[in-house]
């Protein structure tokens, strides 16, 4: 035991300890404070708050708006990730197969990712404006519609519209990652499959898919977390409206905390989101590990 202690280099620990403390504090403080607030009557502008036990959770779980926002978040996440993966995969396959201009297309297609979300949201909002927006005016001028389409204020058009913007924004990232995975597949494996008489579909299922499945899986789980907790894109485009049609959980939590100033309840919403995402991630990693063991 003494022998082991002697091997530890205290001086190095001494030097990095302050940095560790700062980093751990920065990581843990927001999470822990949310957990603590969720059990209190914490109000944004009031200095005193009291312990209320599970009261905030009970109220949130009894609120009809919470369930609407929760299902909206799931719909938004599933539609966004599904669309992004399918489109990203198709684009990656196309880019992988072309011989000329691959680099140029790759750069062009990644452009949406080079802009901050706030810029993208403002530009799209301007383009889709129902009075002087370029896209509605163009559709009228082309004779495709008699009246200016209200992309961001119609209850039926607003979700497909923000979904389209999110697909436009998120697909390039998926595409680049899948493309990188495709380029790591050894050419010999395709040659071997060809020599064995495998059809294109068989080659795709037996060679391509196994090589990219891990990358796609990780992308799906990471993007699920990002999109489910995404606030800026939806908020900047619609503010959760009209009539709360596009209200997701992060917007619901924001309005509870910064609109109603009920930080306790707002924290309870974020903790419920955290628990939900932890469950989703656990299920993913369980099946991922299981599959890996089976392959071994």
């Amino acid at each position: 035991m003494i022998k082991r202690i002697k091997k530890i280099n205290y001086t190095s620990w001494l030097f990095i300890l302050p940095a560790i403390l700062v980093i751990v504090s920065l990581l843990l403080y927001p999470v822990l404070s949310s957990v603590v607030y969720s059990f209190t009557s914490k109000h944004l502008t009031r200095p005193v708050s009291t312990f209320v036990g599970l009261q905030n959770y009970k109220k949130i779980l009894a609120d009809e708006q919470f369930y609407k926002a929760f299902f909206m978040s799931i719909k938004w996440t599933v539609a966004s990730i599904g669309g992004q993966v399918i489109l990203g995969f198709i684009l990656a396959m196309l880019l992988n197969s072309i011989k000329i201009g691959k680099k140029m297309f790759r750069v062009l297609l990644i452009v949406p990712w080079a802009f901050p979300v706030v810029v993208i949201a403002v530009i799209w909002k301007f383009l889709l404006n129902g009075v002087y927006g370029f896209i509605p005016t163009m559709l009228v001028n082309l004779g495709l519609t008699d009246t200016l389409p209200q992309f961001l204020s119609s209850g039926t058009l607003v979700f497909p519209t923000i979904l389209f913007v999110n697909l436009w924004f998120g697909t390039p990232m998926i595409m680049v990652n899948i493309l990188s995975a495709l380029q790591t597949i050894p050419e010999e494996q395709y040659e071997a499959a060809k020599m064995d008489g495998a059809s294109t579909w068989q080659t795709f299922v037996s060679v391509t898919i196994p090589h990219i499945s891990k990358v796609v899986g990780l992308l799906v789980i990471l993007r699920t977390i990002w999109v489910f907790t995404n606030f800026d894109m939806v908020y900047l485009l619609t503010g959760g409206g009209p009539a709360n049609v596009t209200m997701t959980l992060p917007i619901y939590a924001y309005k509870m905390g910064w609109g109603l100033k009920l930080l306790g309840k707002s924290s309870a919403i974020t903790i419920i989101m955290l628990i939900f995402l932890l469950i989703v991630c656990s299920i993913y990693f369980y099946y991922s590990d299981k599959k890996e063991k089976e392959n071994v």
Binding site: N129, G130, V131, L148, Q150, L152, S153, S154, T238, G239, G241, P242
Partner: peptide
């Protein structure tokens, strides 16, 4: 009399 976008 109002543009429909004015809802937001």
């Amino acid at each position: 009399a109002s543009p429909k976008d004015s809802i937001s």
